[in-house]
Amino acid sequence: MIEQVISWLSEVNRKQGVRLLIRNIRFSFAVKTEQDELYVKIDDGLVALHEAGESSSAGKRIEVSSDVLHSILTGERKLREAVKYREAATTCTFRELLLLESLFFLAKPDKTHILNKNLSK
């Protein structure tokens, strides 16, 4: 799961158009699965992992299974849909959910970028 989230972070930070959407936004949240808990920080156009005590992310959480998280990160499923069908739980506001859902969808792995990455190995 960590690799999937890191890949998503890289895609958000790589795509200039997506980064424009989060310019001037500061927001932190935790993503918890069966195995891991990661803390993500959106800060003025960049997204990064951070330490648990680094900012006040305790109130904003997304709890989801690894499989559902994978489908959200790859754009196969919407975050709000997973919450609606109780496949994910969150303490994020509706506006925050919309922002995250947009980021998940717009930063889904680009097949040509993945192909180019694999070819360069």
Score class of each variant (00 low, 15 high):
86 R>A: 05
120 S>F: 05
88 A>V: 08
121 K>F: 15
57 S>Q: 07
25 I>N: 10
50 H>P: 00
56 S>C: 04
113 H>T: 11
78 K>R: 15
39 Y>N: 08
115 L>Q: 08
96 E>D: 07
16 Q>A: 08
11 E>W: 04
62 I>N: 02
25 I>P: 01
94 F>N: 07
2 I>L: 12
1 M>N: 07
56 S>H: 09
63 E>N: 06
1 M>K: 04
79 L>W: 02
32 K>V: 13
73 L>E: 02
121 K>N: 13
30 A>M: 06
45 G>P: 04
77 R>Q: 12
48 A>P: 00
114 I>T: 10
14 R>E: 07
66 S>K: 14
99 L>H: 04
69 L>S: 03
70 H>L: 12
116 N>I: 03
77 R>K: 12
99 L>K: 04
36 D>F: 13
67 D>M: 11
100 L>P: 01
107 A>E: 11
12 V>R: 08
119 L>M: 14
42 I>N: 03
107 A>P: 05
120 S>D: 05
86 R>P: 00
111 K>Y: 12
73 L>A: 05
65 S>I: 03
108 K>M: 09
24 N>Q: 09
35 Q>M: 11
54 E>W: 03
17 G>D: 13
6 I>M: 12
72 I>V: 12
63 E>F: 10
51 E>Q: 09
67 D>K: 15
80 R>K: 15
4 Q>F: 07
104 F>R: 02
92 C>D: 03
26 R>N: 11
56 S>A: 11
109 P>T: 06
59 G>L: 07
98 L>W: 05
70 H>A: 14
47 V>N: 03
111 K>H: 11
6 I>D: 14
2 I>V: 13
16 Q>H: 06
103 L>Q: 01
40 V>C: 12
41 K>S: 13
61 R>S: 03
119 L>K: 10
103 L>I: 02
28 S>T: 12
115 L>C: 05
48 A>Q: 07
110 D>R: 06
90 T>A: 02
24 N>F: 11
101 E>W: 04
96 E>N: 00
4 Q>C: 05
120 S>Y: 04
54 E>I: 01
55 S>V: 14
107 A>F: 08
83 V>D: 02
117 K>D: 10
48 A>F: 07
56 S>K: 05
119 L>V: 07
21 L>S: 10
3 E>H: 08
61 R>W: 01
27 F>S: 02
81 E>V: 10
81 E>Q: 14
66 S>A: 15
84 K>Y: 14
91 T>I: 00
95 R>K: 15
88 A>L: 02
41 K>V: 08
112 T>V: 12
69 L>E: 04
61 R>T: 10
44 D>G: 02
29 F>V: 01
93 T>H: 00
106 L>K: 12
94 F>D: 09
17 G>F: 08
32 K>C: 12
91 T>D: 00
37 E>F: 03
45 G>Q: 05
